[in-house]
Design a protein around this nucleic acid. Structure first.
Length: 310
DNA sequence: ACCTTATTCTATCGGAT
DNA sequence: ATCCGGTAGAATAAGGT
């Protein structure tokens, strides 16, 4: 809901003011000048919540809670007296309990503190936003409570949580990239990742090809008609099981390619390939599969398409 | 920890217009 | 020259034993 509005507003780098360039394949925006990655979907530029209503209960004070710090950023030792805070004693008690538990688990805390440092280091050397860093910390913390860290090095699990957080937000970083920036071998990150995903039931869903189509179509100045047709084609392809396991951007590109033939607004493969971030070969392979199975005859030379089946 | 499978990429060439 | 189709080999990701 608010996301669209936020995306509209971003056009220069919040760090250096340089111009931003879209990396459509990864669905992210990168600063041409300083290389900062601005993840469109997770940047929140709204002002801090401040509600000055009658009881002022929702007003934020101080730093926001953050999973990066081992004590969730509380940073203050809570005194033993509950008096003087009328009506708030239960909350104070809960905070004290949290603090007592965190000091109780000292070894875990040390472990987590080291991991947090490592996660922050990896994220900053990969230019990943704060959201990813925080999510990686949260995942690490959960892994810690489920004892997944047992028998694995802190470094390797930390690297894995960064990889997992990226996957969750569809900011795709390859295993090799994480390896280069963490010193942990690809194989190990991969193995840890499978374990963590299973045990923590992380829901990692690849983006639907349909979610790319409107953006790609407007990028290529194609009509709404083409966009609608391409989405229709993806729906048909889904039914025939032609989508799973394939690069969603490739499916989107191929569907758009077919749609341009049907609508008479033909674009060449190379142009579509460049915009969607895959090679011409992929566009070809996908569009052949889809048009074959859907009974769409594409006549490249006569620049038209015949739909046999539906 | 090693091996297998599936997908995509790069590079390249040939045919058609 | 441009566009499309096809292919080989490497790289990548994910899963199984």
């Amino acid at each position: 809901m608010d996301k669209e509005r936020i995306i509209e507003e971003i056009n220069e780098c919040p760090e250096c003011g340089g111009s931003l360039e879209k990396d459509l394949k990864h669905g992210e925006t990168i600063c041409n000048n300083c290389g900062l990655v601005v993840e469109e979907e997770i940047i929140d530029s709204r002002p801090e919540k401040r509600i000055f209503d009658s009881n002022e209960e929702k007003m934020q004070h101080g730093l926001p809670m953050t999973p990066i710090l081992h004590d969730k950023g509380l940073g203050t030792i809570i005194g033993h007296k509950n008096k003087g805070c009328s009506g708030k004693s239960i909350e104070i008690y809960r905070l004290k309990r949290t603090q007592r538990r965190s000091t109780f688990n000292r070894s875990r805390e040390r472990n987590f503190a080291i991991a947090s440092t490592e996660i922050s280091r990896i994220c900053s050397s990969l230019g990943l936003p704060r959201t990813i860093r925080e999510r990686a910390s949260t995942i690490y913390s959960k892994a810690l409570t489920k004892n997944i860290t047992q028998g694995r090095s802190i470094m390797s699990v930390a690297a894995t949580t960064v990889y997992a957080a990226c996957k969750e937000y569809n900011i795709n970083r390859t295993l090799t990239e994480i390896e280069k920036n963490s010193g942990v071998a690809c194989r190990e990150i991969g193995r840890n990742f499978r374990e963590i995903r299973k045990r923590l039931k992380l829901k990692i869903v690849p983006p639907s090809p349909k979610s790319y189509i409107p953006r790609f179509c407007s990028e290529m100045k194609l009509s709404q008609k083409v966009s609608d047709k391409a989405i229709e084609i993806v729906n048909q392809a889904l039914k025939k099981d032609l989508v799973d396991g394939r690069d969603p951007a490739g499916i989107a590109g191929a569907s758009i390619y077919i749609a341009t033939f049907i609508c008479g607004e033909i674009l060449i493969q190379r142009k579509i390939a460049r915009v969607v971030g895959v090679t011409e070969v992929t566009i070809r392979n996908r569009y052949h599969e889809i048009s074959d199975r859907l009974g769409i005859d594409i006549d490249i030379n006569n620049r038209n398409a015949n739909i046999k089946g539906v």
